[in-house]
């Protein structure tokens, strides 16, 4: 697994694609940092990450579209699948690599929090950590979904488009829930939306249920991806 992770992670930075992803992410982060923090003197990192969750929806599909479809198109997946590595290791290694790139990009924003403290503000340290944890968990679940979609197709563009459609659907589930008359149905629909689980993190609350939700999403889609690849062995 570690070998897969290393190879994939390096792969991001030996081609321009990883840098471009990180660059665009940091540009958007910088922009929101200016609008939400610098322009208003606010030392609340929560508003920045709230905006970045939307950026994530637009960037993740590009980030994950080639994860599995690329190799299948180039028929390199045969090599990988016949190597003495379990499918789970391959899939999870790829997931971790994509996640590490995103975490590295988010890591740069630690500089912003240093700026808060340097300029005399003392926001709650626990709340900042909470925001990072929430953001990374949400990013992880998006990447897992993107990874799964990438395993379904040989075409990168199709993978990206389907991911966009999925994320768009997840984005509007909150709205769908608010339009649902039956309160219990509304609750279930809202529960399935990744955005609704970000609410507590952004308010400054760590709710174990939210972390469990995101980790379940990651586990579910990594598992489903393994199933999809495994299926090719016998069907």
């Amino acid at each position: 697994m570690l070998a897969i992770f290393k190879r994939e992670f390096k792969g991001y930075f030996t081609s321009p694609i990883g840098f471009i992803f990180v660059g665009i992410f940091l540009f958007m982060a910088g922009l929101y940092f200016y609008v939400g923090n610098l322009a208003t003197n606010s030392a609340d990192i929560g508003s920045l990450f709230r905006q970045l969750t939307f950026v994530l929806m637009f960037l993740t599909p590009i980030h994950t579209m080639r994860l599995l479809s690329e190799e299948r198109r180039a028929k390199l997946d045969q090599l990988l699948l016949t190597s003495p590595v379990s499918i789970l290791s391959i899939v999870f290694g790829k997931f971790l690599a994509a996640f590490a790139v995103l975490a590295a990009a988010a890591g740069v924003t630690v500089l912003y929090t240093i700026i808060f403290f340097a300029l005399g503000a003392h926001p709650s340290f626990a709340q900042i950590i909470g925001n990072y944890v929430g953001f990374l968990l949400m990013a992880g679940s998006f990447i897992a979904i993107g990874l799964f979609i990438s395993s379904l197709t040989v075409n990168q563009v199709v993978a990206a488009v389907v991911s966009y459609a999925t994320f768009f659907f997840l984005l509007i589930t909150g709205w769908l829930a608010s339009k649902t008359q039956d309160p219990n149905t509304a609750k279930v629909i809202e529960y399935l939306s990744p955005n609704s689980h970000y609410r507590n993190f952004s308010l400054g609350i760590f709710n174990v249920a939210d972390a469990v939700y995101y980790l379940s999403m990651i586990a579910l889609f990594v598992f489903l991806t393994v199933r999809v690849i495994e299926k090719r062995r016998w069907s």
């Binding site: 626990a126 909470g130 400054g204 709710n207 174990v208």
Partner: peptide, 14 residues
């Protein structure tokens, strides 16, 4: 998920 929801372990970070 149901278990986690049931117990509502929450930490106030503010």
């Amino acid at each position: 998920n149901l278990i986690a929801l049931r117990f509502e372990w929450k930490l106030d970070l503010t």
